[in-house]
Design a protein around this nucleic acid. Structure first.
Length: 291
DNA sequence: CTGGGGACGGGGCCC
DNA sequence: TGGGCCCCGTCCCCA
């Protein structure tokens, strides 16, 4: 039984470039749907163009934020729009080297994301011609309350201090709705992101080697915990008894033994356990025979 | 069979 | 963007 319990499996495979996974940074490992720009919820006033019918400015992110047309990003309106599809129009004249592998409209549609938190940064912008592009309209009716200067996820309202943190968080939503399969070449496990696969691949390559016994680990902090088994260091002491632990998780599990309330209860016999694994083992032992 | 400790994998968050 | 750290969770083993 593998200890990797968070392996994601999806139909279909996508084998990444393992050389890059192991030796280089992934510079563009996000799915096409993730190739968006997460913008601060407060847009500067100067972002709004002054007059309708302005010629398209030089392509840059700021101009996209300022000039992108909200309705054109909404799924139902994009699908029901009359006349040439602006996304199709844009697709007809891609900037050399910037075309995404998945059409922008497709990536946005299947995501069903609220507008304006996903903006095309590698695709010619969608320009509005009605001139109604004030920041409040840009944010749209789905704007949620937020602290000044902060960043907030539209989907789950989770606040973030930094743009980078929100961007990373948004990738989770992308993965939820547009799972990609990155398969490990060592064990065929599949992951939703190249970063997750890269982390997993380290469990095969094991770059962190113990100088005491030569045992190898995937991450430095795992090695640190292992070295404590040699040194006997136990920095995590129980506040209820004199026992100490080398691993904080084990201290946490130990603290459960001091607790009067046990979190995991058997549905059949009402017996409670301090750990999920104990409950599972109890149920598997035959206490809870199925119908 | 149960309780508990040891070891470790993976994701999220912060810097 | 990567590393460090934390948390959650699991499996293995032993008393």
């Amino acid at each position: 039984m593998p200890r990797s319990f968070l392996v994601k499996t999806h139909p279909g495979h996508r084998v990444p470039n393992y050389g890059r996974l192991e030796t280089q940074r992934e510079t563009d490992g996000t799915c096409a749907a993730c190739r968006g720009l997460v913008v601060p919820l407060l847009l500067p006033d100067k972002a709004a163009p002054s007059t309708p019918g302005d010629p398209a400015p030089p392509w840059d992110c700021a101009s996209v934020i300022a000039r992108i047309s909200l309705p054109l990003l909404r799924n139902e309106e994009a699908q029901g729009a009359s006349g040439p599809d602006p996304l199709e129009v844009n697709r007809a004249e891609p900037r050399a080297g910037w075309a995404p592998s998945v059409p922008l409209k497709d990536s946005l549609n299947h995501l069903n994301l609220p507008p304006l938190l996903v903006l095309p940064v590698r695709w010619p912008p969608i320009l509005s011609t009605d001139g109604d592009q004030a920041p409040d309209r840009l944010l749209g009716a789905e704007q949620v309350p937020h602290p000044l200067g902060g960043f907030q996820c539209f989907r789950c309202l989770k606040p973030y201090h930094t743009l980078a943190g929100l961007a990373r968080h948004r990738q989770l939503h992308c993965q939820e709705q547009a799972p990609r399969c990155f398969t490990c070449k060592y064990c065929d496990r599949e992951y939703a992101s190249p970063g997750a696969l890269k982390m997993h691949v380290r469990t095969h390559t094991l770059p962190c080697v113990c100088t005491f016994c030569g045992k190898a680990f995937s991450r430095p902090w795992l090695l640190q915990g292992h070295i404590r088994t040699h040194t006997g260091e136990k920095p995590y002491a129980c506040s209820h008894c004199s026992r100490a632990f080398a691993d904080r998780s084990n201290l946490r599990a130990h603290l459960q033994t001091h607790s009067d309330t046990k979190k995991y209860q058997c549905k059949s016999c009402a017996k409670a356990f301090s750990r999920m694994s104990l409950l599972v083992r109890h149920e598997e032992s035959g206490c809870c025979p199925g119908p």
